[in-house]
């Protein structure tokens, strides 16, 4: 797995478009939100900004890059090449997504640290870590599923848009309007309950029981994403 991850890391740093998508764009977007944090905090809260930061990184750095990477590696038969060796399928997949996942985790860590430096530390760090972990696993699995529906790295620019936009829109909707209205709908949408978890963990003040209640739909989305990945992911191009 580490051999594949090492070669994947080399490829990411040699591919300018991948670098821009996975590193520069999310960091630039995050810097924008942090810079105008007072304005965004007025329409939502600091927790809302934290949630948008998490989902921006998860959507662009992780999800879109995973889809692009897997579709490209399948399209040029690199996946088949790797499967011609003694490496197992889980080791191959793990090796391919490990660098992207680590880069995204480091990004979100650094960006949230920077955000906490200028706006104050989150109220419940363990809860925040749970929310980030669940969000990343969900987006990673959804990335594998979407890659199964994506024939090429070029098509990934289109196929990743719906889910990226939906999750960021849900984060904004929940973050700005709260969950007093359309509570069930907001919590059942992809990323809805995870957004609320991030907001609770950052702002504090919510009863722990309410927060734990949000873990269930968050983990349910993780499970759904994993099932979709298992059903939709393909190792070889369509004939």
């Amino acid at each position: 797995m580490l051999t594949i991850a090492h070669s994947e890391l080399i490829q990411i740093f040699r591919d300018r478009s991948a670098l821009i998508t996975s590193l520069i764009m999310p960091v630039a977007a995050s810097a924008f939100f942090i810079y105008y944090r007072d304005g965004f905090a007025r329409i939502g809260s600091l927790g809302y900004i934290a949630a948008v930061l998490v989902f921006t990184i998860a959507a662009f750095s992780l999800y879109a890059t995973v889809v692009t990477t897997l579709a490209a590696r399948r399209q040029n038969l690199f996946l088949k090449r790797l499967r011609s060796t003694a490496a197992t399928d889980p080791a191959i997949l793990s090796g391919l997504v490990l660098p992207v996942s680590v880069i995204a985790l480091v990004q979100v860590g650094l960006i949230l640290v920077a955000f906490s430096v200028v706006s104050g530390a989150p109220a419940n760090i363990p809860l925040l870590l749970v929310a980030i972990a669940a969000t990343f696993v969900m987006m990673l699995a959804l990335g594998m599923a979407t890659a199964g529906l994506t024939n090429s790295s070029e098509r990934a620019q289109i196929t990743t848009l719906p889910l990226s936009l939906v999750t960021i829109a849900v984060a904004n909707w929940v973050g700005i309007t709260g969950t007093e209205s359309f509570t069930v709908l907001k919590r059942l949408l992809p990323g809805g309950s995870a957004t609320e978890l991030v907001i609770h963990s950052w702002n504090g003040g919510a009863p722990i029981g309410d927060s734990l209640l949000l873990v269930a739909p968050t983990l349910a989305w993780v499970a759904v994403a994993i099932v979709l990945a298992a059903r939709l992911f393909r190792w070889e191009p369509r004939r």
Partner: peptide
């Protein structure tokens, strides 16, 4: 697989890796 070498009909190599890196990667995985 440690006893079998496969030459595929189509290449399937990563375009951004060098020749040595490609051989090293696949070689180690065999």
């Amino acid at each position: 697989r440690p006893r079998m070498g496969i030459m595929l009909q189509e290449s399937g190599f990563a375009a951004d890796l060098t020749v040595a890196e490609s051989v090293r990667l696949i070689g180690r995985l065999t």
